[in-house]
Amino acid sequence: MTSLPESSSGKKLGLVIDLDTCVGCQACAVSCKEWNTTGHTAPLTDQNPYGAEATGVWLNRIHSYEVSPGTHGSGGMTVNFPRSCLHCEEPECVTVCPTGASYKRAEDGIVLVNPDTCIGCKLCSWACPYGAREYDEDDGVMKKCTLCVDRIYNENLEPEDRQPACVRACPTGARHFGDLGDPESAVSTLVRERGGFDLMPGLGYRPVNKYLPPRERRVGADTELAALKPADTGPGAAGDRVFRWLDRALSR
């Protein structure tokens, strides 16, 4: 049923992504691909994987943006930006689905696609503002992040492995998994303390996943940088003055 569940458990499983500590290493993306090509969404196919125009389905994409000028007026800042399904509370990708293949689980809020009933009409991907859904050309159905539903409840795994593959793989601890419906959970606390935000809240999809903003850069960092510049002005040793005169002469 593609209508949204009328009553939910209050549980909202999701991710909190720290844009301050993400280094853009792509480990989460690779780990996601590795796990999900054999899991619930298997296979995540590639077309022409070893050719010049390799393309294929990935459920997690890591972008890099430049923000300029920086908040301290000193050039810009690079922000690595992982992007995957936000498991929205108002997922229009689910309500537009004509077949009921897309659904939001009442028990934990995870948004899934049933690969056995998806007709591959692609309308859900048009309805998603976050580009979370990728069509599998070989399978003829839509694929998306499952929040590793086949790991997080999997009692065959060690307890520390019962979290999404991307979270487990992150070497800098930039990805956090938990219940964002519980105000006392570690992820909710993190969002509160760090000013976590929603992507494009104005669209009204009410994403569950949150992003933590880059921290303020260290005050005085610019002054320290200036100290490292070559001293080409002001008084200096006699030798320096000769070099400076030579520099000016050669510049003419």
Binding site: I62, H63, T71, Y211
Partner: peptide
């Protein structure tokens, strides 16, 4: 789209 507008002008630095 990135929620970073308050930090400055955001543009793509490297493709994903």
């Amino acid at each position: 789209a990135t929620g970073l507008a308050r930090l400055g002008t955001v543009r793509q630095w490297e493709t994903a």
